[in-house]
Design a protein around this nucleic acid. Structure first.
Lengths: 213, 213
DNA sequence: CTTAAACGGACAGACCTTGTCCGCTTGACC
DNA sequence: GGTCAAGCGGACAAGGTCTGTCCGTTTAAG
């Protein structure tokens, strides 16, 4: 936590922080300014995860331990910040889908993606809302891309016979959303990482040959 | 829709309306007063289903086609009204569970209850929120009762071997909530009654013998 | 026709939101 | 260390939504 070439761990965080710090003029921001922007972006991340996309600017500033004035000095508006963060998260999910599409075993690839998707969704209240379309048109293209990838994953798994064929690919986003939502829609949490238990049942349901009516 | 002994269809509606109309004195309310209370309660029902438990008194009055003044003349507070309605709905669900417990085929009973529960939950935004504990302690006892019944249903189904034994009964409320939530958590609706499609996969997952890892 | 009950909706007051402004503080450079 | 602009915090303005009240007008009922 000292001076050296400072290594801000995740690459994405840099990108958002850097974009916000980029000044029209070439001047570098003061050290405390940079530190506070980093804190604000980090606070926004956890706040979106815990509270959702409805989180307020004051709440983010409070979590970051700075005043609202500091928030608005570098951040054009609350909306811009939230959009940037969610765009980033959606990009991560799309990358996971791409990885899964290169898996030689389609069913294995699908399960891996499903776990990543459900896990992210369960951990972050806000990403679930964004995936549900709560953020208007700004993320629409990203969402459509993601749906396309999910479709490919499902069809690949069905072609090899690993996934039952009487399921429409359109149902899969619902089922994955379903596995994640229990976490928050039921007041109490029965077990740690309930979503893993939910997903297991759902994957078994997707794999099994349909039993007699 | 005329004068005769007027038959207000569902018995529950009567109960709530009647309770609100019951005056300390024995005097009967004027005909327009009764009509408006009926309209308000009906409007509150649909509003809770469509908007959720966060619906405002003005919104309910607007839907009922009356002024807010009329709302507050007979209804002590918004909270009282919502609580009464949700209590009623939870009672209906509990009745369904009791019916299911008398089914000679435990698996059949469980599936019937599951369909009723998921259907109600999917149709009414508000009941989902109430089941998720969004209404504080006022419905806590009802919720606990319901959980107890679900536990019985699950254990009965597991004892006969119809439901796989490696599922904890605590997971089942999550899975049922999951089947219903897709409906609203994903912006678009792929099919009419998506919840039926979700539930089918989930029930298959619950029934199937767990496949090899 | 009379009259009390009921009506509608403007209104008060509390709360929460985003975003601005300005007096004080502090990092950076000489 | 001294200078000073960049940065800071949080009170504040402005606008929104909420619940619940009040009162002049309308209407059902005997």
């Amino acid at each position: 936590m000292n001076a050296p070439p400072n290594a801000p761990s995740p690459a994405q965080r840099d990108s958002t922080v850097e974009r916000l710090l980029a000044d029209a003029s070439g001047r570098l921001p003061r050290a405390d300014a940079r530190r506070n922007v980093e804190r604000l972006v980090a606070a926004a991340r956890t706040a979106v995860a815990e509270v959702g996309v409805g989180v307020s600017a004051h709440e983010i500033a409070r979590r970051a331990g700075v005043g609202v004035g500091t928030f608005y000095r570098r951040i054009p508006s609350l909306e811009v910040l939230l959009e940037a963060l969610l765009d980033e998260l959606l990009g991560e999910i799309a990358d996971r889908a791409d990885d899964a599409l290169t898996d030689p075993d389609p069913w294995h690839g699908f399960c891996g993606f499903a776990a990543a998707y459900v896990g992210l969704r369960a951990e972050s209240c806000g990403i679930g809302e964004a995936l549900g379309g709560a953020c208007g048109d700004s993320l629409a293209r990203q969402l459509a891309d993601l749906r396309g990838r999910i479709r490919q994953l499902v069809e690949r798994a069905q072609e090899t016979g690993a996934m039952r064929a009487d399921v429409a690919w359109e149902d899969v986003p619902f089922l994955l959303a379903a596995a994640a939502t229990g976490e928050r829609t039921l007041g109490l949490r029965a077990h740690e990482q309930q979503w893993e238990r939910n997903l297991r049942i759902i994957l078994d349901g997707l794999r099994a040959a349909p039993p007699a009516p």
